[in-house]
Nucleic acid binder design. Sequence first.
DNA 1: AACCGATACAACCGCGACGCC
DNA 2: TGGCGTCGCGGTTGTATCGGT
Length: 213
Amino acid sequence: MRKPCCEKKGTMNKGAWTKQEDQKLIDYIHKHGEGCWRSLPQAAGLLRCGKSCRLRWVNYLRPDLKRGNFGEDEEDLIIKLHALLGNRWSLIAGRLPGRTDNEVKNYWNTHLRRKLMQMGIDPNNHRPRPAVSVPNKSVGSDHSSTCKPENSQEEEDIGSVLQCSSKPESNTGFLPDLNLELTIGPPLIEERLQLSHIDSTQLSFSNFSTVIS
DNA sequence: AACCGATACAACCGCGACGCC
DNA sequence: TGGCGTCGCGGTTGTATCGGT
């Protein structure tokens, strides 16, 4: 049996954060910095579990968050990275300055999945879908087959994922060799600029958009 | 104006990874 | 080296808002 993440579950606040709670969290982190989430709530005078505090900060309160609509270049990037990495949202988000994994994940599930499906592309493996298929009503429910998992070798590194994406039989030539030179690390503006230099004629979401429109 | 389904997004939950003792 | 605690991730749920009837 696993312990609940918070001992005093009954006394903990849940649900939407109030402005006062936000302010307490912001003030505390400004003073003491991030980290030690477990003890933070008590120290900051919050009736929340550390996990909840971390999530609130990371996904909503952090000052470097971009927020607002995703640009076309960001959409392109997410699609490309998802084709390579599957549902590794934190890795994908790491390539999008100012975006969080939760935000990217939500955006994918609500916008991009649907767009790809409308284009006749299977969002799970980024391959063209069989001509006629009953529209999958359950958006978000079919996460069974991303590029990564199925036949995995769980601990694929990014290099092998890259290989996976460039294997002709794994993509029926739909995705070109992207050679994104992915590495794990903090997002760098320069890197992102490099990524944006990928020949957009090879795999451009906006191109697809114009095709179907 | 009221209802209802669809959509978007914030927040929660469970689990694995990792570090420390 | 095994146990324990904490952190971070991905999947899922809850709810507010929007648009159509």
